[in-house]
Amino acid sequence: MIELKDVGKVYNASDGDHRALDHINLTIADGDMFGIIGESGAGKSTLVRHLNLLERPTEGRVIIDGVDITDFQGKELRELRASIGMIFQNFSLFQQRTVLQNVMFPLEIRREPKAQNAERAHELLRLVNLDDKAKRYPSELSGGQKQRVASARALANNPRYMLCDEATSALDSRTTMQVLDLLADINANLGVTMVLITHSLAVARRVCNRIAVIDSGHIVEEGTTDEVFTNPQSEVTRELLGWGSDSASDRADGGDSEGGER
């Protein structure tokens, strides 16, 4: 279980302080496929980066499995991060490593025995159906394949949690569906709790059981996917859904691409 208690984040930007998160209270239960949606700049990435302390809160506490991790440092912090998988919008695969070496990276970091690493990496690549591409380099893969490799890599250390920051935003709609189905599979079959950041309602609707809507650093709505879609409480959500706002309809089609591929 992941709990955020009154988390706030203020960035000291060059043009003055900027509050990116404000009094965030959130509980993500084990087994959840938890969607966090909001428009660009709403604070989604900032929020998810607090879950593995890539970003430290300026206020509040982050609690994972009952342990307050907010002040973790050094080895303790690195071990915590290793136990939480993460995938990214632009895949962040290491360009000078093969697919296999990419998947082995998190194991290498933890100094696991080498021979077992390769075995484990092949096993993960079979899981994402890419074992035949083990010797290729990322530049020789399609976007969808890259994100599947990244997913395999994120699973290397058998994480209980996986964070996905706009994982499908750089993909076309068909590939988006494939990657979403893979993530749903990982959630259902391996019991990995997922936190899925997206600006697309269609993406959240397809796979998430719970959804939180974030706007300007505030959680404006939270509930089961059904609740949020059938009975939205906040103006922001209604706008995202295209209710009573004509500009929002083009946002809800999902799978649209944003940003480049690598």
Partner: peptide, 13 residues
């Protein structure tokens, strides 16, 4: 790429 450094941090490097 800074993203790669961030990814490496996320694996506990």
């Amino acid at each position: 790429d800074k993203d790669l450094i961030e990814a490496a941090h996320s694996f506990g490097s």
